[in-house]
Computed example of a mutant assay.
Amino acid sequence: MPARRRLRILLILGAFGAVLVGAAVALAQGVVPIKISAVVKVTPNKAGTPSHPQGVVVDVRGTVDIPFDYDPPITKTVDVWISRGGVYNGAKFPTCSQSGMEHRGLSACPRGSIMGHGTARALADTVPSYPRITVVNGGARKMYLFVVLTNPARVAKPIPVDIARLRSGKWAYKLHAVVPRSLQIVAGIPLRLQSFHVVSGRGDWIATTSCPAGNRWSYHVEATYESGQVVKYDGRVPCRR
Rank of each mutant, 00 (worst) to 15 (best):
A26S: 15
E226A: 10
I9Y: 08
P152E: 10
W205V: 04
P72V: 04
D79N: 13
L175W: 06
Q98H: 14
P67H: 02
P131S: 12
R132K: 09
L149A: 09
R216C: 05
S210W: 14
A153R: 11
R241K: 08
P67N: 00
T150Y: 10
L106K: 12
P2I: 00
G188A: 08
S168C: 01
Y173Q: 10
G90A: 04
A207D: 07
V39N: 09
G169S: 03
R84P: 05
P67M: 02
V39Y: 04
I74K: 13
T43G: 02
Q98D: 01
T75F: 05
L7V: 08
Q54P: 04
V58N: 06
R61K: 15
Y70A: 07
L11G: 07
V230H: 02
E226M: 06
H176V: 05
S195T: 09
I66L: 06
E102C: 01
C211K: 07
Y225V: 07
I189L: 07
A120E: 14
D59H: 15
V56M: 05
K174R: 15
H197Q: 12
V147S: 00
W81E: 05
R154G: 07
D162P: 00
M143N: 11
Y219W: 11
R192Y: 01
C211G: 12
V198P: 01
R236P: 01
G188Q: 02
S200G: 10
R202E: 11
R104V: 09
S99P: 00
D125G: 13
S99T: 11
A91C: 04
G105E: 05
R141P: 00
T77Y: 00
G112V: 09
A15S: 14
Y88M: 06
C239Q: 07
P53F: 13
P180H: 05
I159H: 05
W171I: 00
A108R: 11
R240Q: 15
G228N: 11
V56P: 02
W81V: 03
A26F: 11
R4T: 13
L13G: 07
V178G: 04
A3T: 10
L149W: 01
T150R: 15
N215D: 12
I206L: 14
K174V: 11
R241D: 15
S97A: 02
P158R: 07
L13C: 09
G100Q: 08
C96R: 00
V230C: 06
A207L: 04
R104N: 15
N137K: 06
A47D: 04
Y144R: 07
I159G: 03
P238K: 05
V186N: 01
C96D: 10
I82H: 08
A187Q: 13
D79Y: 10
R236M: 11
R165P: 00
L145K: 12
A18S: 12
V127I: 14
K35I: 11
T208G: 01
